[in-house]
């Protein structure tokens, strides 16, 4: 009974937003690139590099907001690799993204050694000022993430720009016939995704913590990917899924169960995603042209 009470207590529900923040940010980014037809399993690496860039920028200038800017640019730079190699040169998106994840892991540890002379945890850097809402302490990026959800929805579903993105993801050659520059839109969508994943990284390193720890993204980029699929490639769906997954993480950390090991609760997001993807409860259907490079004049 006690456990049940804890599970649905208001503080736990409120704190889920903190755990959900990086998932919301990266999943929104994922919605953009996947809707344009580019698969992005490099969210993890972009988030990791963003986390490092945030600590570096914050420590360098003493201003955590500059750190956020660094994270944004850091995510962008990594996204640029994916965009150039996969959109411009049309190399395989999965292969290159795998490379980016390995690259991010190696590069961040290398940079820690070169810049700070350590390899596990970076020196401390100023963190973002906390904001109190309903008696809970949040960092501002949580509210940025929540605010971006309706923005992403509006852009994707209520602007001509968003319509073009969606049409490219479904039928690039038809979009091309209408004079839409397919690869330009894809390029921009990948960059948006990188910037948002970078922000998610900043949340981890200077939002909830005040240092960079090696491999600190711990698979959150992949959970964000799962949230995006669970939310059926829709900003609001992705937001809901990210909240659910954040809640699962909060439960597994803060509630102790007598019979169910917390490790298994943390596996729930992954299991749910597989179930939804397989269509056991409400099939998730990806954009049609996902993962395929677009060559002009071929179909």
């Amino acid at each position: 009974m006690d456990t049940l009470f804890q599970m649905f207590s208001l503080p736990l529900l409120l704190i889920s937003f903190r755990y959900a923040t990086p998932l919301i940010l990266a999943a929104l980014g994922g919605v953009f690139n996947e809707r344009s037809g580019v698969i992005n399993i490099a969210l993890e690496g972009m988030m990791l590099f963003g986390a490092f860039a945030a600590v570096y920028g914050s420590g360098l200038t003493g201003n955590p907001w500059i750190g956020v800017l660094y994270a944004l640019v850091g995510g962008l730079v990594f996204a640029l690799i994916l965009a150039v190699v996969c959109v411009t040169f049309k190399a395989d998106q999965i292969v290159v993204a795998t490379g980016i994840n390995i690259f991010a892991s190696g590069l961040t540890i290398y940079l820690m050694q070169v810049l700070f002379g350590v390899s596990g945890t970076s020196p401390r850097a100023p963190r973002l000022p906390p904001v109190r809402v309903l008696g809970m302490r949040y960092n501002p990026l949580t509210f940025v993430a929540i605010a971006l959800v309706p923005v992403a929805w509006f852009v994707l579903f209520k602007t001509p720009w968003g319509l073009r993105i969606r049409s490219i993801g479904e039928h690039p050659s038809a979009a091309d016939t209408l004079g839409i520059n397919v690869n330009k839109y894809r390029f921009i969508c990948v960059l948006i995704s990188g910037a948002l994943a970078g922000l998610a990284g900043a949340h981890l390193s200077i939002g909830e913590y005040s240092a960079f720890v090696r491999d600190m993204s711990q698979g959150r980029g992949f959970i964000a990917l799962a949230a995006m699929i669970f939310g059926k490639w829709h900003p609001i769906g992705a937001f809901g899924a990210a909240l659910l997954f954040g809640y699962a993480e909060a439960i597994s950390i803060r509630v102790s169960f007598a019979y169910i090991p917390s490790e298994l609760i943390r596996a729930i997001p992954y299991v749910l995603t597989i179930i939804v993807l397989a269509g056991f409860i409400g099939k998730a259907i990806p954009p049609k042209a996902i993962g395929k490079p677009y060559f002009k004049g071929e179909d």
Binding site: V95, T98, F103, L107, Q113
Partner: peptide, 13 residues
């Protein structure tokens, strides 16, 4: 730094 090796592996990809 031995992480240079990881970086080289990623570059190969």
């Amino acid at each position: 730094p031995s992480e240079i090796v990881t970086i080289i592996q990623a570059l190969v990809i």
